[in-house]
Lab assay of single mutants.
Amino acid sequence: QWKVGDKCSAIWSEDGCIYPATIASIDFKRETCVVVYTGYGNREEQNLSDLLSPICE
C-alpha cells in the first residue's frame, strides 16, 4: 500500500512518458493521490492504481 512520501513512478499526462515522482498526498476515498515529479516540481493527480514502482536511476 502506498503512503505519503513514497517514491514511485508515474505517467505524466502531457506526454505519456514515465517519470520518477514522490507521493505528496493521498485521498483513500477516491483512490487518488497527488504526485510531485522529481526534478521538475510539477504536481499532478493520479489514480493510486496507476502508480508504478520507482525507477532505478
Rank of each mutant, 00 (worst) to 15 (best):
C17D: 02
W2K: 15
A21N: 01
K7Q: 12
C8L: 00
Q1M: 12
I18S: 01
E45Q: 10
S49P: 05
W12Y: 10
E44L: 06
I18M: 07
K29S: 12
T38C: 13
V34Y: 03
V4L: 00
G16F: 08
L52N: 02
E31T: 02
F28P: 12
W2C: 14
I55A: 09
V35C: 08
E44I: 02
E44N: 05
I18D: 04
C17L: 15
G5T: 03
V36A: 02
R43G: 07
T32C: 02
T38Q: 05
C33E: 00
E44H: 02
S13C: 04
A24E: 15
A21Y: 01
V4A: 01
N47D: 05
I11V: 11
Q46M: 08
K3T: 09
I26C: 02
C56W: 14
P54V: 08
V34S: 05
I18W: 07
Q1F: 08
D6P: 00
L51F: 02
D50P: 03
S49D: 04
T22V: 14
V35M: 06
V34K: 03
P20K: 03
Q46W: 04
W2A: 15
T38K: 02
D50W: 08
C8H: 00
G39F: 13
C33Y: 05
A10W: 07
I26L: 03
L48P: 05
A21G: 04
G5F: 02
T38D: 15
K29H: 11
K7L: 12
C17E: 13
T32L: 06
C17T: 01
T32R: 03
K29N: 12
E31H: 09
K3Y: 13
G39W: 14
K29I: 13
A24K: 03
I11Q: 03
K7E: 13
C33I: 08
S49M: 08
S9M: 15
C17F: 09
N47V: 04
G41W: 09
N47Q: 08
I18T: 02
P20T: 08
E14H: 12
C56H: 14
N47Y: 13
E31Y: 07
D50F: 08
Q46P: 06
R30S: 11
I26E: 04
E44W: 08
D50S: 05
Y37R: 01
K7V: 11
V36W: 07
E44T: 06
V35P: 02
E57I: 12
E31K: 14
E44M: 10
D27K: 01
Y19Q: 02
K7A: 12
K7P: 11
C33G: 00
C33H: 00
V4T: 09
I55M: 14
T22L: 11
I18F: 10
A10Q: 06
N42L: 14
T32M: 10
W12G: 01
T22R: 08
F28C: 05
S13F: 06
Q46H: 13
S53E: 14
E14P: 03
I26P: 09
S9R: 15
C56E: 15
S25G: 03
C8Y: 00
D50Q: 05
G16I: 09
N47H: 12
Q46A: 04
L48A: 04
L52G: 01
W2Q: 14
I18H: 02
I23M: 00
V36T: 06
A24S: 07
D15A: 05
C8I: 10
W12D: 03
R43E: 13
G39E: 09
E45F: 07
S25F: 11
I26V: 04
N42T: 14
D6Q: 00
D15S: 02
L48H: 03
L48Q: 06
E14S: 06
T22C: 05
V35G: 04
K29M: 12
C56P: 15
K7R: 11
A21D: 00
G16S: 03
Q1G: 13
L52D: 01
N42K: 09
K7Y: 12
K7T: 11
N42I: 15
D6W: 10
D15W: 08
R43L: 11
C56Y: 15
V4K: 02
L51G: 03
C17S: 01
I18C: 15
K3N: 11
T38Y: 10
R30K: 13
R43C: 13
E14F: 15
D6E: 03
Q46R: 06
N47A: 09
V34M: 08
K29F: 12
E45K: 04
E44P: 07
Y37H: 02
D15I: 03
P54M: 10
C56M: 14
T32N: 03
T38M: 11
T38A: 11
I11M: 08
P54T: 07
I26R: 00
Y37T: 05
N42M: 14
K29L: 13
I23Q: 03
T32S: 06
G5Q: 01
D6A: 00
V4S: 09
V35D: 05
R43I: 11
G5M: 02
E57S: 14
W12H: 07
Q1K: 13
